[in-house]
Amino acid sequence: MKGLLDLIVGDPQADRVVPPTGVTARLTIFVSAVMAFLAIIALALSLSTGRVADRWAEELAQAATLRLPADPEQADAQLAKALEILETTPGVASTRALTNEEQQALLEPWFGTDLPLDTLPIPQLVEIIADEPAYDPEGLQARLTAEIPGVVLDDHATWRDPLLAAAGRVRLIGWAVILLIGASVAAMITLAAHASLAANAQVVRVLRLVGARDVYIARAFVRRYTLRAGLGAIAGVVLALIVLQILPDGGGFFAEVGFDGAGWIWPLMIPLLAAIVAFFATRAAAIARLREQT
């Protein structure tokens, strides 16, 4: 804790030994801001994708659809039988036969609005909401098939699983992007620290001659780069949050993009992580460079 405090407060005398300006300083702040901006956008997309996928998966996991054979003559009897079986099945919370209007709405994207539903052999759909614990889908299918041949129970597993897998991959890509951004920040800071140490070779030489330890010399550089990376990241995070706020929502996925609940920890963590990466990258670069230089 004392080390962290020393780093933030610094030693004004020690700080003065390194010239205060330079193009590397501005570049460090700029690159750190850009990387933090990209990290926030990547995180927001990744977390939002995860949230949406989780919600869809949860909704799909609770709901199932029963499709009765399209037989107009026996439709009412089959529906009554199916509802009777469902009502007596443990693990079924509720059932509801879809109305003609609802079924027509489902078909509209393919057949348009003027579909004569009553003249077509459309299978009746029944929505099933599972209880906790849920029913056994295979057992229910067997019972239904025994009473109503041709009935199909769709528990949505066939497309819930790929959806979950895709969401998992999107999340993984999100974290990979964060790691790459972190590595890029470390590489950039290392290069900047090397350049700065090379540009200040005379300063380093004088410091060594008057008895400065490597840690003292390194600290002046480390503190600067740590603070620059942290400040640049704060600017990048603020900019990214503004961009996320002004994204056109249109009620689609973009309305979901952003941070939620515990996810808000990330905008706070990114500047801290950038500073930590900068601290270790500069320290390693400075110590290595000092060993080469003097």
């Binding site: 030994v17 410091l207 008895g211």
Partner: peptide, 29 residues
């Protein structure tokens, strides 16, 4: 080196620090 004072022919200072700060540098470090 803190027990050895070195004077170079070319002196070797940190040019952006004042004379006083340069002279005080061994104490500072």
């Amino acid at each position: 080196r803190r027990r050895i004072g070195v004077v170079h022919q070319d002196c070797q200072f940190i040019d952006h620090l004042s004379v006083a700060e340069n002279i005080a540098l061994p104490l500072t470090v």
